[in-house]
Design a protein around this nucleic acid. Sequence first.
RNA 1: AGGCACGUAGCUCAGUGGGAGAGCACUACCUUGACGCGGUAGGGGUCGCCGGUUCAAUCCCGGCCGUGCCUACCA
Length: 868
Amino acid sequence: MEIPEKYDANEAEARWRERWEADQIYAWDPSRPREETFVVDTPPPTVSGELHIGHVFSYAQQDLIVRYQRMLGRNIAYPMGWDDNGLPTERRVQNVFRIRPSRELPYDPEWQPSADRGPKEAVEEVSRLNFIEACERVCEEDEQAFEALWRQAGLSVDWKLGYRTIDAHCRRTAQLSFLDLHERGQVYQTLSPAMWDADFATAIAQAEVEDREKPGAYHDIRFAIEDGGELLIATTRPELLGACIAVVAHPDDERYQKLFGKTAVTPLFHAPVPILPAAHADPEKGTGILMVCTFGDAMDVEWWRNSGLPLRQLIGPVGRIVPAHWGEPPFQTREPEAAARAHAELEGRTVKQAQRRIVELLGDDGSLVGEPRPITHPVKFYERGERPLEYVPTRQWFVKLLEHKDALLEQGRKITWHPPHMRTRYDNWVEGLNQDWCISRQRFAGVPFPVWYPIDEAGAPDFERPLLAERERLPVDPLAEPPPGYGPEQRDQPGGFAADPDVMDTWATSSLTPQITSHWATDPGRHERLFPADLRPQSHEIIRTWAFYTIVKAWMHEGQIPWHHITISGWILDPERKKMSKSKGKVMTGSELLSEHSTDAIRYWSGRARLGVDTVLDPSVFKQGRRLTTKLFNASRFVLGQLEDSGADLGAVATNEIREPLDLAYVARLRGLVERASGAFERFDYAGALQATEEHFWEFCDDYLELVKLRSYAEQDGAGRHSAVATLLLALRTFLRLFAPFLPFVTEEIWSWRFGDGGARSIHRESWPCLAESDDVPAPAQAESFACAMEVLRKIRQTKTQAKRSLRWPVERLEVRGEAGPRAALEAALSDVLSAGNADPEACKVAQGAAPEGERFSVCATLSEQAD
RNA sequence: AGGCACGUAGCUCAGUGGGAGAGCACUACCUUGACGCGGUAGGGGUCGCCGGUUCAAUCCCGGCCGUGCCUACCA
């Protein structure tokens, strides 16, 4: 095969991508047994339209491990899924098309989403199904972009194993999971205050909550005490005054002890509320006495639950103040009319607006003492939300977690974490759980609950007796299909049924990715072969969601761990050390960087980064990768060129012809590399393998190649030449395969020239280098020959550089002094040293003598007056 | 506030109980018989600070400082 002079990475990479796809070299073979299989539980990226280099970085790291395993001969099951459920998708669709879903509107088959509607036009309301269609359309476009990126990045995915979390198979799996957990008593429904995002108007789970430091202010508000006197409440949420159900202070707080049992009266609303001791009141904070509202925070919820006091819900599902009938329970008041007047001022306002207004009212009323005192404090947000969470009493489905903490910690310990300290994050999360998993979302684009409720003759749904779908009929859409035993005309009729209107948390589906790939729901035989998976690669911020929930599900359904190993990638940081996905301004897309620097160079950069370690985006590392690629190309060209140019039959040289002392010593080094790189990969330490390989490769080029260059193309076709060529070929075959996971394109290109039969045998299906390949090469008598030869050659080079001569400049006379041991090792390889240094063998003297501290030889090279 | 991790050359990062390293950047030189998308040589670091263990500490232990993340913190 013709060996090109220059390497055109973009051309070669495009060519090999097509070839690999055509040859299906990454296909999983369903006929091979479990023990030969390596199953990857690949992260299904959230199809949200953002494509940045951070994605490429972490997915490339998985691919390194996968490619190593493939070269060990494993049958790889490496799927790629898309997570197109959930709020990120809905939000994008809402913004792109400027539409809002409505539960009331009927489906309009003519309607088409259009991104061209200008920002000035009103937001359009569309039916649930039209909205879902728009979501699917956006996802499909994004999925194509992602797939193109993954292909460009050289991921060795078997695309036939792909899935989308909204496809029928995934919906069936998620619904089956729900039914199974229901049967096992691990899910329950309850009507209680749930953490609520007002913009999305849905409940969310603890795992999706994050704290943000926000400015706020203490407002000191005067409450009357019914027997006379008053107290001062400090609150950051004056707008919840109407929701106040009690006033509490610490039981040991002497300032307030005498008030316990009395009744306070709120300003504006004149509501009588008990003054009670409560352990959670901190005497140091605010005024030491606080109002309990329904609901200001999690503490309020917990305290209310145990108090038996009424629920005065003020904040509605869209984050505005709802109507209230002051004077009627639960809104007891001493002055109904005044309370109603105050409430009218707030009703319909958002929380923020209501706060501003009530502060004015309290000021006018004389109940606000002094000016608000600004503070910053942590406020809980839905991680993708923009308004602080509220607590809204609603009916939600939960998966039991709190009673299983110990078991879940135990499951975590059965999994090998890479790096190990990442398990601590899992442990911290499990230990800190304070709620069960809320899995229902009051949204649209997601997997519906396979549940209906019977409606009694009075028209009220009976939530205690849910009607569950039959397993064989999954997936179902309860909003479109009737439950077993009912007809469609009975929907929402007395004596009929009502569908559960909610969809599941996106994690309720993505926590099943191992079972989705294994076809747990439909194919027990395949499940047996693919579950548990071997590897879960992911990033650290979703340990508490994806890793955690996946462990939960595998344990609840089958008492199993979902995978044996979990690898945690670090983040890519921009030059300001911010996470790439959060970078502001212009960020180069992954595709741009791959084209500019070549995929191999970008993968090299990924491979350099250790698991779990955040990495700054540094183009100098791309450059290093590019340089390595070029060097590999050129060195290979030289080695294989020896075979091409030769009149002699060097194509048949074999390892058993390796006899020269220098070559034997070099093969010994190469064997050390194979052991080191393989050991590193076995520990999932691809970066260690790359580092070892790269170091050895540069040594191979700069030192070994230079030493044997002349011998390898010596005029006479002798044993020395055969030994050199055989060693070069062994080394090249070894390096190419050691680099193949990192640099899949250039290694394949080179492999195809001679070893791969023009690409018919892909390097990616060759076997990983092993010691047996060089077992017929005897151990060197002088193991130090290579090191000694290099030391002398370096000193000759040094002399020439200092004399500002080229490296081929002839050496007229060479004197080497050293001890007997090193001398013997050197002399075994002396002829190679002399030819590499262009020194006259007749004028070379090696003798007994002292060497400088820490070195073996003292070398004196006298350069010729003139070049040859 | 607790936990985990990190702090090594100007930058990005390896590393080990005994010699401080790589790439980039920088300096000088080499016009190359695989490679100028190259090569050779070189300058540059009290390995965050303070203690301890040890014959010996950048590495092990303790404390401190700084950075990042995880968890907690809404009156």
